[in-house]
Design a binder for these strands. Structure first.
Lengths: 193, 193, 193, 193
DNA sequence: CATGAATGAGTCTTCATTCAT
DNA sequence: TATGAATGAAGACTCATTCAT
């Protein structure tokens, strides 16, 4: 099918661009580089994306949506709220391990400099926080979590595992799971004596 | 005095640049704009910074160091570990309220796209986490916080208040203090029922 | 063919640049002018030469090599050493008549301001002096020229025709050949009574 | 006296500029460098010369006039035409040995790219060729030189010693005098067998 | 007189985008 | 559909010159 070929090339470009943009600023990545990395001619890029700017936006969306899709799947598993939150964290670890360059586009450019994507990004963050918030809400309903502002708790929990699992701070491969467990435990038990 | 004049101009440029870079990408800010914003000739910028790139790096450092300096001061206040952590959070609120454009350069570009600054930035983050970690350690010594990995806790706590106080999510001015208290309380008591 | 097109464009640029640089200093010639003179876009120049500086160097080499190639051809003609030397001089006249702008880059910037080309230029001058020196050597062997340091003689002869045929001193078109003959005669007979 | 101090500074700047321009292109030498080399403030240069361009022109004139003044003096010595021509050549050697950087401005930028100086330079060259030509003319009158176009002979002779004594070709210090004698001998006796 | 910080006009160079092949 | 040579708009940066001290 024609569409399949087209979609394959789109993803090929996005993945190549993802790797290149990782750790570089927008203007440090040349369209020619992306083309080369995607093993295509420069002109071909423009068959799939109307501009470099749009390509970057698409990459941003592609990464974020991939993350949220996987997170949703991970959080959907049955179990206690603690198990489900842990699943969210495990999913995070797996994602940033497998798609480290994509991870980059999700929370770390979180105040996207792409003005055009601002509201889109807010919505996606909302979706993610809602996902976590719902798990917390259910935990409250189940009596596993004390009554609280689930929205705030979702943000706090998300922030804490993001910070604790920063691949620049720890060895994700080796210590990821352990830290995931610890940070989740901390969220449930608190630090107080 | 000569040195004073020079330092004043440096800061004048940095502050002007900070306001301009805020919410824009590196290449969207023209050196001429910075010069105009700093009320100087374009050439004068180059008397103080060898390149736009270097100016950006210096801005990054300037902002980060300002933040850490203020955080250190805030955390130094006497009191319980809870009060001191709260002081760190209050400082954060004040900083991103007063210097919202500078805040931008601190945790939100936290995987600095500026390759050259990577290790520098790691060090600064370490310094900040150590600052928080020491407060937690003292809390443990005092019996206010249960025995735990203070480093991990520091990262988790920092992550949670950063996420919860995101100015794009909440009205900092209005709800900042309340949320600061809540997120700190959550850190101490945990979410568990 | 592709390569042909590329070489054509290179030469087109070099010739255009040659005409422009003639009688102007490096910084008085704008890249845009060269592009316009070569009937190309400014960016195209940079497809062929990495910088204006390099383009100038290439022009220098191009001109010098063209001169030497033609001189070699002229000097290769059969005949007495006097005839062959005269051929070298005639070639010089023809060259600076037809390619006056290229001539400019050859002996008149003879202590090349282009530091990078210094040794390259020395080599080329050596080649030219050797060419003349060999003719003289053969003249000695044939008994047409008395035994002497052919290297020195080559330099002296070259210097004398260069100076005597300076287009700013004489009317090359009108008097060139006559003066060429005279200066060659002077070289053979000497000025002594 | 005031004027003495002023003249001293002028020469100081010219000499410093001469050393810097030597082997560099006009735009490669910065006014700041000249100032530093002359051990003055940048602004001070402008007290003595209205522009960098004019400074360069003055340097050019200064060098050329110094050369011609010395050549005239050298050629004025009593003796045979051969001795006097040799004196001109010896003077050349001494000049380019003592003032190598000034020599640079004389015959080697002989088609001055400074359009404004063109006619001035032609005149100076005329003066020099006349100087040599007069010696030749007197030689003819004395019967030391055969009847000939003294103008052409002057150019040829000048060209030959310039080329033969090129400091990039020979060791002036060591071989200068010998080559001077040889090139003069060649001029008188000719190369013919 | 001497200075050097401030200036901004002027230019090289880059690179996203086009389009003829 | 794929390509990459050609393009030129746009911007960082330089540096001669000025002028307040």
């Amino acid at each position: 099918m024609k569409n399949k070929r087209i979609e394959e090339n789109r993803v090929k470009i996005l993945e190549a661009a993802g790797r290149l943009f990782y750790g570089k600023r927008f203007h440090q990545v040349k369209v020619g580089e992306i083309a080369e990395a995607a093993d295509m001619g420069k002109g071909t890029i423009y068959e799939y994306f109307p501009s470099k700017e749009k390509l970057f936006e698409e990459l941003f969306k592609y990464s974020t949506e991939k993350y949220i899709r996987l997170a949703r799947k991970a959080g959907a598993k049955k179990g206690s709220s603690r198990e489900r939150l842990l699943a969210i964290v495990f999913n995070h670890i797996e994602f940033i391990t497998r798609f480290s360059h994509l991870d980059y586009y999700i929370f770390h450019i979180n105040r996207s400099n792409i003005q055009e994507l601002h509201s889109w990004f807010q919505e996606k963050r909302d979706q993610f926080l809602s996902l976590v918030g719902e798990i917390i809400d259910e935990g409250i309903r189940r009596g596993e979590i004390r009554a609280m502002d689930s929205r705030l708790a979702a943000a706090a929990f998300t922030g804490s595992f993001l910070a604790a699992l920063d691949p620049f701070l720890i060895d994700l491969e080796k210590d990821g799971k352990k830290i995931a467990a610890e940070v989740t435990a901390l969220f449930f038990q608190g630090a107080g004596a």
